[in-house]
Amino acid sequence: MTMFSSRNWREYPQRYRLEASKFKKSGKTYFPPRAVDPETSDTVQEKVVLPDTGKIVTYTVIRTAPGMWADNAPYALAIAELTDGTRLMAQVADCDVNEVKIGMEIRIEFRRIQTESHHGVLSYGYKFVPKWY
């Protein structure tokens, strides 16, 4: 369950900056970004940055977490729809699992995603937090 630092590095654009690919022919936005539009085989795309707020569409609660997330448990893993309609999945931080609700407004925050033992690389990226301001 470790994330190799090379893979982590390759995914910085989406993990750090929420960069998605928007294809010219279909006008569809994909996140994580794709090289080819699976519907049209189009490769002509522009980079778009996703908005940082949205609403929870669905979620599940993780009570028995894999080792590297044990100190976060219990936590909710949610799919949220951002204000531009894009859906993505992330952990819900700073929120009691009993307070997570479908329709709950969230904001995206930059958090530590994985801590690989005491000597490995630290992985950063996005999590959802309740949007309270």
């Binding site: 976060n72 931080a93 925050e109 958090r111 530590r112 995603i113 801590t115 630290l122 950063y124 999590k127």
Partner: peptide
């Protein structure tokens, strides 16, 4: 919390 550190606060 455990997923917050100097880097995430700084960002």
């Amino acid at each position: 919390p455990p997923d917050m550190d100097t880097i995430t606060l700084a960002v």
